[in-house]
């Protein structure tokens, strides 16, 4: 019995659907709720399947899928969104958490006490400009070049947004840890 060549569906499942968790995570951080995230992932996967012929095998499938997801989000979801998408870039004073804490907890052990729900909330509350680079890099492990490709930004911009996003996130988690008494004030 000779083996049939893999069908388009089998190929798609093997190459693309392994990235479902990534798509769901990014969708969750973009939309802010599970129900919209599921709709967004479904729309993305359907679109990706229909344009699977345009995907070049051997190139970065995950980046290709996240790009489709982001474009779908921009076209469909943001139109309906009542949340302001632009947040003032310079409004927040960014402190250096390490400098603030180095004498009390230089190894950052306080992070361990913070529950994952709070971390997800903190990521969610970052301005979108910072949130996506942080999610793609720090949660999903994409390279700066991949993120630049997805967001259609120069690598230098990705780098600076990522750094500033991390700084804000650290600060927020630090404030939370102080409030909860995980760090001596």
């Amino acid at each position: 019995m000779s083996r049939q060549p893999a069908s388009k569906r089998e190929h798609f499942e093997r190459e693309a659907l392994v990235h479902l968790d990534t798509l769901y995570n990014v969708a969750l951080r973009l939309t802010g709720n599970a129900s919209d995230a599921e709709d967004l992932v479904q729309d993305t996967v359907t679109k990706a399947y229909r344009s699977w012929d345009k995907y070049e095998p051997g190139t970065n499938c995950r980046a290709w899928l996240v790009t489709i997801l982001r474009n779908t989000f921009i076209n469909q979801f943001r139109r309906e969104s009542r949340r302001p998408s632009k947040v003032e870039f310079e409004a927040v004073q960014e402190i250096n958490v390490f400098e603030a804490i180095k004498d009390r907890d230089p190894e950052g052990t306080f992070f361990r006490f913070i529950v994952d729900e709070e971390v997800k909330r903190a990521i969610q509350d970052l301005p979108e400009e910072f949130r996506l680079p942080v999610v793609l890099s720090d949660v999903e492990g994409l390279s700066y070049a991949e993120i630049a490709e997805i967001l259609d930004l120069p690598v230098g911009t990705v780098k600076s947004r990522l750094f500033r996003g991390r700084r804000r996130l650290q600060q927020r988690l630090y404030d939370y840890a102080l409030e909860m008494g995980y760090i001596r004030s």
Binding site: D21, L28, K120, L169
Partner: peptide, 9 residues
Amino acid sequence: FLKQQGRTK
């Protein structure tokens, strides 16, 4: 820490 805590399946 972010890598461990930030992900959802």
